[in-house]
Nucleic acid binder design. Structure first.
Lengths: 194, 194
DNA sequence: ATAAAATCGGTACACCCGTACCACTTTTCC
DNA sequence: GGAAAAGTGGTACGGGTGTACCGATTTTAT
């Protein structure tokens, strides 16, 4: 037999060939989109492959398992979310957060879904923490305070809950908005002079 | 043919026979337990039936669908959770909340999982809101304030986020505890004299 | 007692899933 | 040029799922 060892080459993190790298990125994008639209349950090998116009086997070739695909898609989702949130806040201010949350509700839902999912899957906790830390940092930067400042942390907790409740429960906005501005002015009044 | 119409009798909300009512309750308890331990994904017809020591068909006989079973189990889970939380707080005070959250982490995870799940399933939103409202009311009662009071709402948002973060991210307790007591004293200081 | 209704439970169907397999083609490297 | 490596894709396997089906049994009402 002049045969090589059987094709044990699978799941390359960064494929050597250009087309492969492109394909992997396409799959990841498709995964993120599916996650965004349908949440955790929508992420299946078949759906991803179909969405990316690639054969089913491509998903198992570039990703070791569904869990790994999920982890990478989650990480990417968090990164773009943080970036989106930051620019939105610098453009419109913290008061305008409810509008952002209403805009793409399904993405928020997916994010929270994955966030809670991380509670049972330690390999995702790093990403969950990264999201939380990113949000805190955005608030700290907006208020020109260190992210360890108590006012920042408190404001963050208020914003988070209001956000989550708004996305999940879909209550009328009035109460949310009132509470948000109240928390904001409280934090602002306690600010040291610039 | 002297035959009756075929057996279209299914999914009774309250079975007429005593044993049936008992069986339905057993199934529901099993469903709650499974949900508590394994979350959303653990709730399957077969698992419930096996847990309740009943045949598979019993689940489809007493519940119209998995979704209905899930809804009822979720509702029951929220009710017992609210009761547990209330007695814990009246016994140990608001400061001792982190201990409660650490005690049965998997149940908390399941609750949050279902809570977020309700965002995509409007028939569950009523239950989600009921949980939120219950938590607010507990805080209001503890502080002897109306549940519309701003301090109550703010404290609630802080507690909720700290709780969720603690359950999901499993960070060290120090920061959580410090922030919680800070928020508490802030709210307490703003109290009107009794 | 007896017919009708309610309940029971074993089984089967159709579907979707993650993943493995493997012959095949393309690219890379010497 | 030619062998090895990388990539490709159609297919299949084994398993779990919700739910329907339907004859047998038990309870209820008359």
């Amino acid at each position: 037999m002049t045969h090589h060892t059987p094709g044990e080459r699978t799941h390359p993190d960064t494929p050597t060939q250009a087309r492969g790298r492109r394909r992997r990125a396409t799959l990841l994008t498709a995964a993120v989109d599916l996650l965004t639209e349908g949440g955790f349950a929508a992420l299946t090998h078949r759906a991803v492959a179909h969405r990316a116009n690639l054969p089913l086997a491509a998903t198992t070739y570039y990703f070791a398992s569904r869990d790994q695909l999920l982890a990478e898609a989650f990480a990417q989702l968090v990164d773009t979310e943080l970036a989106t949130t930051r620019t939105w806040i610098t453009d419109h201010g913290l008061t305008a957060l409810p509008e952002l949350a209403t805009a793409d509700r399904t993405r928020q839902l997916s994010l929270w879904e994955l966030y809670v999912h991380a509670g049972r899957h330690p390999e995702l906790q790093r990403i969950a923490r990264h999201w939380t830390d990113g949000c805190v940092r955005i608030i700290a930067d907006t208020l020109n305070l260190p992210e360890t400042d108590t006012r920042v942390r408190l404001l963050h907790t208020t914003i988070t809950t209001l956000w989550l409740e708004h996305v999940v429960e879909q209550r009328p906005l009035d109460h949310t908005r009132a509470l948000l501005t109240h928390a904001l002015t409280t934090a602002q009044n306690a600010l040291p002079p610039p």
